[in-house]
Design a protein around this nucleic acid. Structure first.
Lengths: 215, 215
DNA sequence: TTTTATTTTTAGATTTGTCTAAATTTAATT
DNA sequence: AATTAAATTTAGACAAATCTAAAAATAAAA
């Protein structure tokens, strides 16, 4: 697979999680910042290689083969992110772009040795699960902070939105994966939350709460 | 720079060390397993980018800019090799190909953090020096084992030939960088050496001795 | 159910890096 | 110095991945 093909497969994988019945041409084009016509061209090629099933105007889905390839790319991306944060000292908002390059390095031996070196981590720095060497993904039990009951305690296990702005906000508020959150109160009008994080009281907008996973 | 451009620059760099007056089109084509006409095309492009100075039929040399780029690529290649051997447990004959891919990852911050993580190594697993962040290369004092005087002791500091076969031969004979070598005798007829390596006596052909650096 | 709007695909062009085959230049040999 | 050989460059073509503009199909609205 070329880097370009891998990028298409990866995007189709992520979009499939939201629309499992078939991914739209325009949606793919939007994610890859390319034109719909380019997507159509590539779908024909990926279909010839039996990585996607594609019928004109009907959207695409990954084949078994394409699904497995996608998970291997995601595995590589997330393992490299762990390496960058845990070993090299990058912060969690700096690693995505570098991992976008590293995920295309080919050697399977490399990624399995890296996995071992990192201690077989279950999740990347944003809390997203890492597929194992066979492609198995252990689902992480989690709820959005915006949806949990009041007066209960949780700990942060992941973010839904990994944008730099959101991650930097969390850093500023000293919220990290593993932090303990107790929901004190929820405002009826706009769903603003009052929470206690690692003992400190804090007010959190619904938009924030809607992007933070807890367990 | 594209990956292809980087590969050309790197090859010109290595060939320049042997022919500093100008590198031949055919020599480049040979190293990159491509055709002379492709090299000519690329030389025009690299010349337009001020990475090489090129005049028809006269061979090419690197400009200041090209020279610096080359050293940064070599730096990345060798640091990744150290990572693969020291941290992931690859053997020294397995790392070249993977490093060929890793050397094209773009982030400067990444490579400097990797350098620090590895403890600012001076040389890669084959004994080749690693340029620092500014491109400075500390020359490693070394001689070929085939050229040293008899009855003196040295230690192995590098290999000239990094082919799998040669490296595997050294592994088999338990010769590693750091091993202590004493030259006992040299056969006049074919320059075969009798040596003592880490205490064990061994007979070594001139071809071997001519690919092993000692200090 | 037409008509309109949106989405998707086709057709043809472009760029990058490569190739083959022919032409040109330089080097080597007689 | 003339001829032959080798190296290098040019010209034209091709595959991969992309684009624009036009055509076709599907979905939405009147």
């Amino acid at each position: 697979m070329t880097i370009s093909e891998e990028n298409y497969i990866k995007v189709i994988y992520h979009l499939s999680l939201v629309s499992p019945k078939g991914v739209n041409t325009n949606a793919i084009a939007g994610m890859l910042d390319t034109k719909a016509s380019s997507v159509t061209d590539m779908m024909k090629k990926l279909s010839d290689k039996d990585l996607v099933s594609y019928q004109k105007y009907q959207g695409v889905t990954l084949t078994e083969k394409g699904f497995h390839s996608a998970k291997m790319i995601v595995r590589k991306h997330r393992l490299w992110e762990v390496f960058l944060v845990d070993k090299l000292g990058f912060s969690w908002d700096e690693v995505h772009e570098i991992a976008e390059e590293l995920e295309h390095i080919k050697s399977e031996q490399l990624i399995n040795k890296l996995d071992a070196f990192l201690g077989f981590p279950a999740a990347d720095p944003h809390g997203d699960p890492i597929p194992d060497a066979k492609g198995v993904i252990k689902k992480i039990e989690k709820q959005l902070l915006s949806e949990v009951e009041i007066n209960a305690s949780f700990h942060c296990v992941g973010v839904k939105d990994s944008s730099t702005d959101f991650l930097k906000y969390l850093d500023k508020q000293k919220i990290a994966l593993g932090s303990v959150v107790k929901v004190i109160d929820k405002e009826d009008f706009d769903d603003t939350l009052t929470v206690e994080i690692d003992g400190k009281r804090l007010t959190i907008s619904n938009k924030i709460a809607n992007n933070l996973y807890v367990q």
